[in-house]
């Protein structure tokens, strides 16, 4: 098997050289993500910075890394940062990503705890936080929109997406079990898919 530029589901990947951002660039991107990630839209923010704006990773590289970071123990977002940092610049990249991600929130969370008494008395703090959280969800909807549109070209991938969503989101089955189960079937389907008969 020649490691070619063809993805097996029929997309042509342009074989551009892998991007090699500086360690500082990785640190500063993840530092900003960590510090500004109010409302929990972390995945959406990482996707925007790394895939949309900087094009450090392809969509499939990001999504498969996301699935992997959910299967492994640990916070999804810290695992995703390690995965991205490692892919871009090896051990230093991974270190820059995780330290960048956590150093801002480390101080911020303690600052908020110190100011908690004062914040509690502000009437609209909670409303503002809910609004910010809702806006952050919009970033995730963008991922879903782009990703789901791609999978409709491929019945097996689309089935995997729907099955994962239904089992985890609606039936509340165990996330690691569903990911492992649906993931294995989906990978098997991808393995037997040939470039010639995509979909």
């Amino acid at each position: 098997m020649r490691p070619g530029p063809f993805e097996s589901n029929g997309h042509l990947l342009v074989s551009v050289p892998a991007p090699r951002p500086s360690i500082f660039a990785i640190f500063s991107v993840f530092f900003r993500i960590g510090l500004f990630s109010f409302g929990g839209g972390l995945t959406g923010w990482v996707y925007r910075e790394v895939v949309v704006v900087r094009e450090w990773l392809s969509e499939d590289e990001f999504m498969s890394g996301l699935a992997m970071s959910q299967i492994l123990p640990g916070t999804n977002i810290s695992n995703l940062s390690i995965y991205i940092g490692q892919k871009l610049r090896g051990v230093l990249g991974a270190g820059a990503a995780i330290v960048g991600l956590l150093s801002g929130p480390f101080f911020a969370v303690i600052a908020v705890a110190s100011a908690y008494g004062a914040l509690k008395t502000l009437t609209f703090t909670e409303a503002a936080m809910d609004g910010v959280a809702a806006a952050a969800i919009g970033m995730l909807l963008v991922i879903i929109h782009r990703g789901a549109r791609r999978t409709t070209r491929n019945p097996a991938a689309f089935a995997a997406l729907v099955a994962t969503f239904v089992c985890v989101g609606l039936l509340h089955w165990s996330l690691p079990l569903v990911t492992a189960g649906v993931g294995s079937l989906s990978v098997l389907a991808a393995w037997f898919r040939r470039p010639s008969n995509a979909g």
Binding site: E7, S8, N9, G40, T43, E59, D60, E61, F62, M63, S64, G65, L66, A67, M68, Q70, E126, D130, G131, A133, A134, I137, L140, L141, I143, I144, G147, A148, T151, A157, F158, A160, L161, V162, A163, T164, F165, V168, G169, L170, L175, T179, V182, G183, S186, V187, L188, A189, A190, W191, R193
Partner: peptide, 30 residues
């Protein structure tokens, strides 16, 4: 095998994001 893993896991990742959105919107008070 890597390509198969990547192509196979990508839709699972999207499904997990969808599930997360539903959960957050349901739990959140808005």
């Amino acid at each position: 095998w890597h390509t198969a893993l990547e192509n196979g896991l990508a839709p699972v990742g999207i499904g997990l994001v969808m599930a997360g959105v539903i959960t957050v919107l349901r739990v959140g008070g808005g």
